[in-house]
Write a protein that binds this DNA or RNA. Structure first.
Lengths: 221, 221
DNA sequence: TCTTTCTGAGTTGCATGCAATTTCCGGTGC
DNA sequence: GCACCGGAAATTGCATGCAACTCAGAAAGA
């Protein structure tokens, strides 16, 4: 049989539904009917229920007892809090990375950053977004703390639809790369507080960029 | 019927099992047999399974597909990472609190800290531990960021058995209160970086205290 | 004696069924 | 027109049942 990546149906379901949510295929506020999902994926309600409960704990889905589950909707205030939290945790990772990255890890981070210069210049948002994920992942890994890395990854996932859109803004790629440059320089130089400040500024600028987009969208209609 | 606090059986089960884990009634590594838990709480396996999956996502329980669930065991390395993560996130909350606490929140934090002086002097570890939870909770709340507060609370819960034990060490209460004093002074004075440093130092000292205990325990047998 | 294979008991994963609750909708009174 | 109120349909929460898998231990072989 098609024993795909995941082991149990519940796990595969949780992964698929999470993917559908973060890519925007399932819009925030969308009602998650158990029977409908079961039919859609050709399973019974039991694994669907378990997957939903799992997603509920991770924050992607809001579970309302006896009233069904919906795709978590983020108010503008919550969106701001999510960005602040991500900025702070990523900045913390950057500070720890500056203190404890191995020479090999530093060289790899530097190489990754160099490679992204071309992607930024060629103005390919999708490719840059992928490389960007790898770049931030390298910083998390360099912090040598799985707990913080998990938190940061979870937040990145939840904010993915918002972050991705802003890469298409004119000139955003080049500025993003420049901000990364400041982070890399501080980490390679072992200047912990500077790395913290640079990463905090970088993520905060992403937030501003996203907020600007949302305001313009809201105003445009 | 005894419609307790929780709404559904699954939620109440999750809360009860989590409580049993953090209080140490269920030891790390303990096998969580679905049928046994179902019998123990007088329900069927279905809500037990859903509760376990939820606890698995939050990190209290390790889910091994087709091989059952066990109470998550933390290696010394993971314990250290959990403490570092908690220290960093609490320190971040303290910095944000120093920047954005309202005057009312500041007065309450100050009052809470004052009240704890007596508890520390009377050497009542249990009462101090409860007040300590309220104190740190006030700092999270003052950061005005529900995401970071959630992370911090989750980490506090997971580390509770370890933190609680060290309050019984001679003189630890007085030192803890003194460390809190540095945090409070910095927050009330709006000195963000100082608040960060003071909280980081406080939690790091708790970690050292716990590690010392563990080393002595391991050596004692 | 140690390794390997096989068998069976025990457990998990999932499907199905039913009761309780919520939600939807038409009707009634104001 | 609007609020209020049944009652039916729909949906969730949970129990139960069965198949598949895991693991322990016995039996066979080296």
């Amino acid at each position: 049989m098609d024993e795909a990546a995941g082991r149990t149906r519940t796990e595969r379901l949780a992964a698929e539904i999470a993917e559908a949510i973060v890519t925007g295929a399932l819009a925030p506020g969308h009602r998650l009917d158990e029977q409908a999902l079961a039919d859609r994926y050709g399973v019974s309600r039991t694994p669907v229920r378990e997957a939903l409960r799992q997603l509920g704990t991770s924050g992607l889905v809001e579970m309302r007892p006896r009233r069904g589950a919906v795709v978590a909707q983020v108010t503008p205030e919550q969106l701001a809090e999510l960005f602040v939290a991500m900025a702070e945790i990523e900045a913390t990772c950057a500070r720890l990375a500056a203190q404890s990255m191995s020479p090999l890890e530093r060289r790899r981070l530097d190489a990754l950053h160099d490679a992204m210069a071309d992607l930024a210049a060629s103005d390919d948002p999708a490719a840059y977004a992928r490389a960007n994920t790898a770049f931030h992942g390298a910083v998390y890994a360099g912090a040598h703390n799985a707990v913080l890395a998990d938190f940061a990854l979870g937040l990145r996932r939840r904010l993915q639809p918002y972050r991705e859109a802003q890469f298409r803004l004119a000139g955003r790629l080049a500025r993003s790369h420049a901000e990364h440059g400041a982070v890399v320089a501080a980490i390679l130089g072992g200047r912990a507080e500077e790395a913290h400040a640079a990463m905090l500024r970088h993520v905060t600028l992403v937030e501003s960029s996203v907020e600007g987009m949302l305001v313009r969208e809201a105003g445009g209609r």
